[in-house]
Simulated assay, not measured.
Amino acid sequence: MKKWDVIKRIGRFIGIALGAIIAAYSVQGFIVQAGLGGGGIGGIALLLFYTLGLPIGIVNFVLNIPLFILGWKEVNRIFVIKTFFGIIVYSIALDFFKGIQPLELNDVFLGALYGGVLGGVGSGFVFRLGGSLGGTDIIAKVIQRRFGWAMGTTMLVINALIIIASWAVLGPKMALYTLVSMFTFSKLVDVISSGLPAKSVTIISIQSEQLIQRILQELGRGVTFLHGQGGYSAAEKNVILCVVSISELGHLKRIVREEDPHSFIIVQTASEVVGQGFALE
């Protein structure tokens, strides 16, 4: 193995550890302080902490063992190793941060919001680096590999049962605030792990050559020609396919408007783009 590959691998494990620490602090610093529940294995650990006083970190680790075995059988071994490492760091950090709450939050909604944001950022980085923090994350990863569903959305659906349990233990108000936290968490996980959605733009124009030159020069984005034919006129024409970031979309529209005011533009959301100029795994 090359030296640079070793450095990158070590860097990924360091990144997973940092993400796990951030996620653990979101629980102790915001979620527990606000008296909220959570989703998946972590949510069960929180309920056992509130009712029986059991340490969240230890319970989280023990309950993750069966799911870790599932991951070992269903998912590639590198992912499982990274996940096991993430679970260990996360579980230790959960109990290490117990009682460390430098910010006093008298607003439950802020606790739910910031707990969800910070937890989503930490978990999202762990996902992006090829690992997870266990629990329903492993199940979501398996479902993503088999069906292509977004991990954050999958976790939100799975965690509905935990919300019902939270409703019974913590009461309806706290359960609803917990849902706010989980929704925020799931959206941040999708953004961090997959990146901000880009825009796939299809342009039908008789000025295709001029458009391509300006797109290449001003945006630095590649374009693809698709050969089309008008349904009414039967005239052959070039269709331009281009993917740009959200911030570049306005500039692209201006270029098209200036070169061909009669052009036809279709803009679609690309939830994830992997390639030159975009996120590379």
Rank of each mutant, 00 (worst) to 15 (best):
G120H: 03
L170G: 08
E104Q: 14
P172Q: 07
R145T: 09
K173S: 14
V126N: 05
P102L: 14
G131F: 09
A150R: 15
I100S: 08
G122D: 03
G130Q: 07
R146G: 08
G152I: 03
G148F: 09
N106H: 15
V142N: 09
L170S: 13
R128H: 13
Y114F: 07
A150C: 05
N106R: 13
V142Y: 07
L133P: 08
G134F: 09
I158T: 04
A168N: 11
T136W: 00
N159Q: 01
L105Y: 15
E104F: 14
A112Y: 04
W149I: 12
I139K: 06
P102D: 14
L133G: 09
G171V: 10
G130A: 10
M151W: 13
I139W: 07
I158M: 11
Q144A: 13
L113Y: 02
G119M: 05
G171P: 11
G152T: 05
G122C: 06
I143P: 12
F147L: 09
A168T: 12
V117L: 15
I162C: 03
V142L: 13
V169C: 06
A160Y: 01
A140S: 15
I162R: 08
L118M: 02
S132Y: 06
P172V: 12
V121R: 07
L113N: 04
L156P: 03
L105C: 13
L156T: 05
A165E: 00
Q144H: 15
L170N: 06
V121N: 08
L156H: 03
I163E: 04
L105W: 14
L110A: 01
G134R: 07
A112S: 02
R146F: 08
N106I: 11
S123V: 13
L156V: 05
G135C: 04
V117N: 04
V117S: 10
I158E: 02
T153D: 14
I139Y: 08
L133W: 01
G152N: 02
T136K: 05
E104D: 14
A140R: 04
L118H: 04
Q101F: 03
A165N: 05
W149C: 03
A140I: 07
L118T: 01
T153M: 14
F125M: 15
L129C: 14
L133Y: 05
P102A: 12
I143R: 10
N106G: 15
I163P: 02
A168F: 11
W149R: 12
G152A: 04
P102W: 14
A168W: 08
I162F: 01
L156G: 00
D137C: 10
G119S: 07
L170Q: 07
